[in-house]
Design a protein around this nucleic acid. Sequence first.
DNA 1: GTAGAATCTAGAGCCGACTCTAGGTCAAAC
DNA 2: GTTTGACCTAGAGTCGGCTCTAGATTCTAC
Lengths: 131, 131
Amino acid sequence: MSALSIGQVAERTGLSVHTLRFYEREGLLAQPVRRGTAGHRIYSEGDVDWLGVCIRLRASGMPLTDIRRYTELVRAGQGNEVERLEVLRDHRERVLAQMHELNECLKLITHKVAVYEGRLGLRDDFTDCAP
Amino acid sequence: MSALSIGQVAERTGLSVHTLRFYEREGLLAQPVRRGTAGHRIYSEGDVDWLGVCIRLRASGMPLTDIRRYTELVRAGQGNEVERLEVLRDHRERVLAQMHELNECLKLITHKVAVYEGRLGLRDDFTDCAP
DNA sequence: GTAGAATCTAGAGCCGACTCTAGGTCAAAC
DNA sequence: GTTTGACCTAGAGTCGGCTCTAGATTCTAC
């Protein structure tokens, strides 16, 4: 199984080494990272995969505390699938809501862009700061 | 023209009075809020509309500094449509990127939800009514 | 006219999520 | 054999975006 240094993982994930250590302290890793000589972290491919999941969850707005909770459930092993499902479903709801919100915003922006393009392309008509 | 107190605007927009004052300090309002006797703020319907735009922009992840920049352009009046367009188009790009990211996350979650649902559906044991 | 609610300003405090610093260990390259 | 660079820990600092406090004033209802 591959063994990666924190620097290599940083490069692969796009997270800084600082952030990787920070995430570990925060309990976001499914299992404690292996250590080599002098206590250097040794990441497995599985660790990197898990980090990938965390990154996705973060990018979609899940707070660290929720990611930690989910991680803890996974770490605890089988028997808590119902709770994991709950966490995931809750987050899915929030993601969907967020997508809806983004869509509304997109409509607004697209409208405004059209207004300004029209104004520039054709002639001045004064529909100023209307929403 | 309607005249609203800060409390009424708070109720309408869902922002707190604190946040309304904060936004004003931060220069997010298209024009300075009118003041009544004793310096109490008097918001117009237009102010509320503009706040609605700000709220949308915030909800879609635009930082306050960018909203302020856009506000300043609007406040400066006609002649800077090109710059306004640039701000809007840039943000649209970011919104689209964010939607893409959310979509990826949604796929991941949906997949995981399916996995857990499958696992629960197949093996029905004491994981059923877990607290 | 007085109690209680709403408003004002200036400024402090808080929270999440990093981000960086200081001071140290260690392996390998020159 | 020392210098370089990647790594370590503990803890401090930063930043964005609010959120709250203190102390004063003013509006509203009785």
